[in-house]
Amino acid sequence: MKFRRGRDTDESFTAFVAARSHRLIAHAELLCGHREQARDIVQSVLVRAYQRWSRIEHDDPYGYVQRSVTNAVTDWWRTAHQRHERAVDVVPEVPGRQDNALEDRGALLAALDLLTNRERAVVVLRYFDDQAERDVATILGISVGTVKSTCHTALRKMRIALDDEVPSPQSFHGTKEQS
């Protein structure tokens, strides 16, 4: 049986991409740590999702595509040793932009870079995508206990990294004032 895409299917898919692609890219970026790679992964997943759109659009298309993105990032990690490109650790500064959100984002991505791939996936799925521990375990193919312990370890690492970035109170006040 040959599938024919209709105008309604195209419009439905286009609306989905417009509404959800930014969140999917952010999800992928948090998992892999590289914005351009995240965009490539999401684009590849969306191409495959479009081919199956008539089967997935009426169920849970975001859940389906999100899981596909997670799986694609996992595949990307597994094939890292086969790639010749190297991602840069430091993104060049954007001239003229002094934005705390950009600094906070950079600190968050740096803290995520300290985690193992599994720790990073658990943190992103639990806190960025707001998945239940049980769902994270299912998505990653691990036990709920492993999700809990991995999350605990990962958050501890991130807290330490982020605490190192916060200036101490003495750096704000210099020396102690005399009364």
Rank of each mutant, 00 (worst) to 15 (best):
A38L: 03
K2D: 08
D75P: 15
E165L: 14
L109A: 11
L102D: 15
Q82P: 01
R20G: 11
E57F: 12
V147G: 13
L30Q: 10
V122H: 06
R126M: 07
R105V: 00
A110T: 11
L162I: 05
S68Q: 15
V42L: 01
Q43V: 06
R120I: 01
H81S: 14
D8V: 03
M158F: 13
K157G: 04
A80N: 07
S21I: 04
V69N: 03
L112R: 05
V90M: 14
R67P: 05
F3G: 03
A19P: 02
R67D: 09
D59C: 05
L115P: 06
L112T: 03
A87S: 08
A110S: 09
R120Y: 05
S68E: 15
V124D: 07
Q178S: 14
D10A: 11
S168L: 05
L125Y: 05
D60A: 12
P169F: 01
A72N: 03
Y62K: 10
C32V: 12
D59N: 08
D130N: 09
V91S: 12
V73H: 01
S12E: 03
G63Y: 12
V91F: 06
A80L: 10
Q37V: 09
D8A: 09
M158I: 04
R20H: 11
Q131L: 14
P167D: 11
D104P: 00
V65N: 08
K176A: 15
C151E: 13
V17C: 07
